[in-house]
Nucleic acid binder design. Structure first.
Lengths: 362, 362
DNA sequence: CTGTTAGCGCATTCAC
DNA sequence: GTGAATGCGCTAACAG
């Protein structure tokens, strides 16, 4: 290497420079009150002169903490995940923690198993002080409990299993599915299809259950061919599902998509085929991502409180790490229906029922 | 705590259990060849029995490396950033590194300064082995060079300053801006506006410069009121900018948006006002995010090779960390025009020029 | 108030 | 092949 790698100053160098012992420097660094003002001044000056920065690894080894929190997510690119990541990132930094981010994959059950090994590696190596897991798979629960026993606390977000002893934040996906479907029913539609996420994911099953319940409550029969499973929550999934749905014996009047991206993909297919939203088929999405508002037509959707979820999780975890609390967290957050133009109304051919959009006369 | 926190086994516990010294266990752990097969077996068995996992902090302190790479980004939620994050994450994991992610903020110049302090904290504390910075601000260059001197290599992505001595991957934003504008010109439009990103970001200025150059090359005069600055790259920015643009003396025939999200926001405003795309105003976006394909109409855009950028950056950084290379990286990646339906053609009122969309007869 | 002494958990010389 | 000693950079308990 041509680069000259000068030696980093250690706490001892500072001590020598200031004419004190390393312990005193340590006291100054940690803002301990029992240091004479004059001494403190001298030490601080030496620190500045040498441009000294404590070694986080050494501090961690000694204090038995790292100042790092792990966040394991299915992916780092779908809006649902990025929303939570953003929220967690902000909360963590506000608390002075760094965020170690790892993606476990979502596509197949195989890759889901990878999550467990990620957790093992992260937790057992004492690389992090605590762990946040977004949409944990069931096989992760064991390792997570073991880690808790080893003193590494965790909070699980959007966790649908029996979390016995673990801290969990769950979204009422059942309620959200019910909400979406009910809105379509109230808008006058009866022939309602659902484009699901992966059936092996509890969040998908819960939204589907909500859909079923709403239809049942309204006495509307359920048509299996209108329940289309997906491989993920992205546009591609939506395209594929919509193509499948269009091959059904009868075309539905309305569609509940298990994610906004699925709705986008599905609506793109309709465009190609010459069907219009909401005139020919009404749509409700799920997630409440920003782009849903800009979409044309603006997408009615069920918003998940991503910011709240991330913040609650991060803050509770920090509390556990800091020993400020012992409580088990077990909250359920509710979804919220955001009505836009994509649902129209079965009664009229126009968008009379839509709260946003063009004035009637223009 | 009700949870029993059993003590983690250390390398000494394993040594005692196996009847060897700690050094030998260390040799086994690091797959050194000079250990008798029988001894190795015994040690491995003890490791398994005690469920021993090396302490990453201690290993790091001793070996002077952490196995962690820092990634500093403007945000973790806009598609441009998430695309790079995803790519970096994958490459890093393939190489066995963990990713520490930090967001510096994008909105104001003030928050940009925060980037420098993030870098300081990260680099000087020996918390990471190397650093990736997405869209570095100029004030970060000093700290970055200092870190390089201290043996912490870095690679800067989408970096537009004189990077003297630093490793950089730059996108040809000028070329991309030219490409987008040229496409609109070729489609027959002459009245072309641009919705920019923040003027204080070099990427914004470069795209604008490309826009200007294309117009000049075609002998089309530039109207300052059609150059609308933005505060960011999101939908909100697009909405605000479009409203501003609609107040100009004359309405342009086409718009080049500095990001796909800006285009989305702008098109939503047009929808509210009763103007249609591309019939009334044609659109070209920038980024090439997945949703651009699902948008209605499908958005013509300039795709950035996010995956390539992230991968190149991560792999070169890993090479530097591992000492496999000394080379300065200094590559420029090109953008690519993706033609869809949002541009139409000035010659016809219909979408005759669009490669995708409805068949003419339907 | 401050210095001395011991670790934290591991890797790395050196001997044997 | 293997073990004993030493150090990575810092904090913490104990003296004084």
């Amino acid at each position: 290497m041509s680069t000259l790698t000068r030696e980093r100053p250690s706490i001892r160098d500072v001590a020598r420079e200031a004419g004190v012992s390393a312990s005193t420097v340590s006291r100054v660094l940690n803002a301990r009150p029992d240091v004479a003002p004059a001494t403190r001044e001298r030490v601080l000056r030496s620190i500045a002169e040498l441009n000294y920065h404590p070694d986080a690894q050494a501090v961690g080894l000694s204090r038995r903490r790292t100042g790092v929190v792990g966040l394991v997510v299915p992916d780092v690119i779908t809006p649902f995940c990025t929303g939570v990541i953003e929220s967690v990132q902000n909360s963590l930094r506000a608390r002075g923690y760094w965020m170690l981010l790892a993606a476990s994959g979502l596509d197949t059950e195989e890759r889901a198993r990878m999550q467990a090994s990620l957790l093992e590696e992260l937790g057992r190596s004492r690389r992090i002080d605590g762990l946040l897991v977004l949409i944990p798979v069931e096989s992760s629960l064991g390792p997570l409990r073991a880690m808790a026993g080893d003193g590494v606390p965790s909070v699980l977000i959007d966790m649908q299993y029996n979390g016995g002893g673990l801290n969990t934040i769950v979204v009422d996906n059942y309620g959200g599915g019910y909400l979406a479907t009910e809105h379509l029913l109230q808008s006058g539609y009866r022939d309602i299809a659902i484009l699901c996420g992966p059936h092996w994911m509890p969040v998908s099953r819960d939204r589907l259950a909500g859909y079923r319940a709403a239809l049942q409550d309204w006495g509307v029969p359920i048509r299996p061919e209108w329940i289309v499973p997906g491989l993920g929550f992205n546009e591609e999934t939506g395209q594929y599902a919509m193509r499948t749905l269009l091959q059904a014996d009868r075309r539905p009047q309305a569609v509940f998509a298990a994610s906004d991206l699925i709705a986008f993909g599905a609506m793109a297919v309709l465009d190609e085929v010459g069907l219009r939203v909401p005139e020919d088929i009404a749509f409700v999405g799920f997630d409440g991502i920003p782009t849903a508002a800009s979409f044309r037509p603006p997408l009615t959707t069920v918003r998940q409180p991503l910011e709240t979820m991330g913040r609650l999780a991060a803050e509770h975890l920090c509390g556990l790490i800091a020993g400020e609390t012992d409580e088990r967290l077990h909250v359920t957050v509710e979804t919220e229906l955001v009505v836009r133009d994509s649902c129209g109304s079965a009664d009229s051919a126009s968008r009379a029922a839509a709260p946003r959009g063009l004035p009637a006369e223009s």
